[in-house]
Simulated assay, not measured.
Amino acid sequence: MKEFVTVIEAKKILKSQKLKGKSAFLPLQKSLGKITSTSVLAPMDVPSFDNSGMDGYAIAWDDKGKGREVIEVIQAGASPDFVLEQGKAVRIFTGAPVPQGADTVIPQEYITRTENMIFFERDEFIRGANVRKKGAQCKVGWEVVPAGARVSPGTIGLLASLGMREIEVYPSPKVTLILTGDEIIDLGNKLNPGQIYNANGPSLEAYLELLGITELTILKVKDEESEVTRVIGEALEKSDFVLLTGGISVGDFDFVKGSLEQNGVDQLFYKIRQRPGKPLYVGRKAEKLVFALPGNPASVLSCFIQYVKPCLLEWMGNSDAWSSPKFLPIEKRFDKKVPLTFFLKAKIQDGKIHLLPGQESFNLLPFGVADGLVEIPQEILYVEEGSLVAFYPW
């Protein structure tokens, strides 16, 4: 159990958790963006038969005759059941099976045809020209998709061409988002004095959707200890990740920390030497992670991007979940008066980092145009103009 950890310590603790979801078979149409948990082996040869790569005429290369009689037309989807004899040819179309006895396709634009006879110049071709051989793409048992690969539309097309209807991947986790605070009012309702609109719910829901997480439950809980404890217990029963906003500080109506303890959640750390988002709590119960985020919307998003997002991605099998930031020059000098790690909203312009006005934890205006967050480490009290700073894009 740790309190007031540094950003480096917090990330080290989270990386050490090594949580990963259990793999499952999903239909191809539901697997987009997921990570493969095992390598995928081809269940068949592709192509599964020799076929034509061109519209043209299939011939036997060893047949030295100057002309050939066209005896048949073979379209894609046909099943020719004859052997091509010497001196014969077949009209064939792209993708159609090449009949036995034929091994070369001459494109139609190189053919001179008179009635049922064709002629062409042999010197312009070689044996096997324009024939896609069986297994040329892959053979049974070949690895066609490695483990740890992100499923793209191209992946889905490849597997569909192999006749596969599903793929084993790391599915998205089940997430419950619990919003605390009696002052929080849902959108569409009129605000009374002392009330604020629910910004944390929609912003986190959008970010979770961006990560491909669709199994999300959003709950609003009253600032009553028994209710907070009950709702957290229910969320832990059915979720892989539980996220809370607000109620994690030390005020008279901040019941989250105590309610987590009552539900058997083991604290990993509480409070980070950073701004914004100091009162961040992270705990674990069995294979479930709990993030109790601050209440201020800017703090919520900053903590989510730095700590929650990588854990979710790691759970879903992403090997680069804790990817390193980019380093870009800062447009002008920045000073800070306290030895905390600062996360600052910023925009990239002309290859430089421009810090945005309105960096207070309550202020969401810079999030409307920011490209990501800049990290100024705890031990650095100022950054000179042009110095490289760590930048985390959205």
Rank of each mutant, 00 (worst) to 15 (best):
V40C: 00
R275F: 10
V369C: 10
L179C: 12
V5Q: 00
S172I: 00
E261L: 15
F120K: 01
D45N: 15
N296K: 11
L14W: 00
I380P: 06
G386S: 11
N200M: 07
R91P: 02
G201V: 07
S31P: 01
V145T: 05
Y110K: 13
K285S: 10
E215R: 14
T214P: 01
L191M: 10
P366N: 12
K347Y: 09
D182L: 11
L364A: 05
Y307K: 04
P276S: 13
P377V: 05
Q306N: 10
T112E: 08
L19M: 15
S172W: 04
Q267T: 15
K2W: 12
I248C: 13
R127V: 14
D50E: 12
P43H: 06
K257T: 08
K134T: 08
P202Y: 04
G101C: 11
P202D: 13
T245H: 05
F49I: 15
R122M: 09
D45I: 02
K278P: 00
I59L: 09
A390P: 02
W322T: 03
L32M: 11
Q262T: 13
V308C: 09
I330Y: 03
G128T: 11
E314I: 05
A96W: 03
S323H: 13
D182M: 12
I184M: 08
I118A: 04
G157R: 14
N198T: 12
Q274N: 13
E143R: 13
P43A: 12
V250I: 15
R113Y: 00
G95C: 09
G351F: 03
G87E: 07
V105E: 00
I185V: 15
P80S: 07
A199T: 14
A102Y: 00
P193K: 14
G277L: 04
H354L: 13
A149V: 01
A89R: 03
R91L: 05
F291E: 00
T114I: 09
V90C: 04
L179V: 15
Y382D: 14
D182Q: 08
V228T: 09
L236D: 10
A235E: 02
E225M: 10
G135H: 04
I74L: 09
E183Q: 11
M164N: 04
L204R: 02
I126E: 15
P171S: 09
E215K: 14
K326V: 07
S249C: 10
L19Y: 04
P202K: 01
G56F: 01
T6D: 10
V40T: 07
I74E: 02
G21T: 05
W61R: 03
E143S: 12
G157W: 04
P377R: 07
V374I: 15
P276E: 08
I184H: 06
L388C: 06
Y207I: 12
L313I: 11
S48W: 03
S79F: 09
C303W: 01
